[in-house]
Every structure is written in structure tokens, then in C-alpha cells.
């Protein structure tokens, strides 16, 4: 019972963060929101008794993929400053 309530709360948090990721004007905020979606999804996998998938999602989805996005956006922002 309590697990279902936790799952519903996590599901709502995932959807809220996804909407922020799609609609926020600032790219940095959108990228961090997408990382948070992955982090909540890994908790969801843990509730669905899939610890292997939860580990992978936490390490890859919210760690490495966020840092890759940041590298690219940082590069683009630097370029924009040079040419403006």
C-alpha cells in the first residue's frame, strides 16, 4: 500500500520534471530536469524490483548523459559569445 503511494508520487514527479524539461526556456534547466527524470526513474525501477536496471539508469542516465549534454551546451554557448 505505502509502496503504491510512493510510486504514484514518483510518477507525478517524473511527469512534472519531464514537462519542465520540454518547456523551460533555459537549456541548462531543461538538461538538469531531464537528469532528475532519470534519477526518479531509477527509484521507480527499484520499486519494481529491478535493482540491476536501477543501477544502470542511475550511473548512465543521470550521470554520464547529463555531463555529455553539458559539454555540448557549454561549447555552443562559448561559440555564441565569441561571435556575438
Amino acid at each position: 500500500m505505502i509502496i503504491k503511494i510512493i510510486a504514484i508520487i514518483i510518477g507525478l514527479a517524473i511527469l512534472l520534471m519531464a514537462l519542465i524539461a520540454v518547456y523551460n526556456k533555459k537549456l541548462i534547466v531543461a538538461i538538469v530536469a531531464a537528469g532528475v527524470v532519470s534519477l526518479f526513474a531509477s527509484v521507480m525501477y527499484l520499486l519494481l524490483s529491478a535493482p540491476d536496471v536501477a543501477m544502470t539508469e542511475a550511473a548512465i542516465g543521470s550521470g554520464l548523459s547529463t555531463i555529455i549534454f553539458f559539454y555540448v551546451v557549454n561549447k555552443i554557448r562559448k561559440n555564441r559569445k565569441d561571435h556575438a
Partner: peptide, 24 residues
Amino acid sequence: VFINGHLTPGGGFQGGAIVASGLV
């Protein structure tokens, strides 16, 4: 993590991702 992949949660993919995070 990748040596104990056959006993506990984890394995080659997770361990590889953790190694890459160390490099990050």
C-alpha cells in the same frame, strides 16, 4: 561491481559506467 556481477546486482555495464564516471 563487474567482478561480482553474477552474485549481486551489477555487472559489466554498470561497472563500465562507474569507471567512466571516475574519468569524468
